[in-house]
């Protein structure tokens, strides 16, 4: 039986999601999500540093989804739409957990795994140097991405990134990135 992405969403939400969304990721939707989370955060967290960190990481995650969520298995487009993404934010005893997910083609699984493993292996100082190197020498893609998003998320979260690839079929997997923000 094929992977059920609704089940993954339900599992990610658990019983206590602070914010949860699944559906089409458009520019307008990103605005709405950012606005809602910003006002909710202001109500529950007095720590400005934490609010800013979450907002910054969320912006990068949502924009990654915006640029890459157009990969949806053909047989799921009717059910999920053309730009499917999932976002779940939870408040923990200490800090927050952010889970984002989208489909990727299986060809990208190895590249993404290696990239995240590499980031996880680097020290804070090495991440900073890598960020500066790419900032200085790599050109922006026509979509406006610069290969800096994941590095920035790793730097700002200051914690190892967890990731999962749930195989859907021979062509696609569902990619979930779990970020701990403390």
């Amino acid at each position: 039986m094929n992977l059920d992405v609704n089940q993954l969403y339900v599992k990610a939400c658990g019983a206590d999601a602070f914010f949860a969304f699944k559906g089409e990721i458009t520019s307008e939707r990103i605005n709405a999500i950012l606005e809602e989370i910003e006002s909710k955060l202001a109500l529950i967290s007095s720590e400005v540093r934490m609010q800013k960190k979450i907002y910054n990481i969320l912006v990068e995650c949502l924009q990654n989804l915006y640029h890459h969520s157009d990969t949806v298995p053909v047989d799921l487009i009717g059910q999920l739409g053309n730009n499917y993404g999932m976002v779940v934010l939870k408040k923990l005893d200490k800090g927050f957990s952010l889970k984002v997910g989208n489909f990727v083609s299986n060809e990208k699984v190895k590249f993404l795994s290696e990239k995240i493993e590499k980031l996880n292996s680097l020290s804070t100082e090495a991440l900073k140097e890598m960020y500066k190197f790419i900032l200085t020498y790599q050109k922006l893609s026509p979509k406006g991405g610069g290969g800096l998003g994941l590095i920035d998320i790793a730097r700002k979260s200051n914690h190892h990134l967890e990731y999962y690839f749930y195989p859907y079929d021979d062509t696609y997997s569902f990619y979930e990135l779990d970020i701990l923000i403390v």
């Binding site: 907002y55 910054n56 990068e60 924009q63 050109k139 922006l140 991405g145 800096l148």
Partner: peptide, 11 residues
């Protein structure tokens, strides 16, 4: 706030 896409343009 600025995102990483802006960071290159700011540079």
């Amino acid at each position: 706030y600025f995102n990483t896409s802006s960071s290159k343009c700011i540079l």
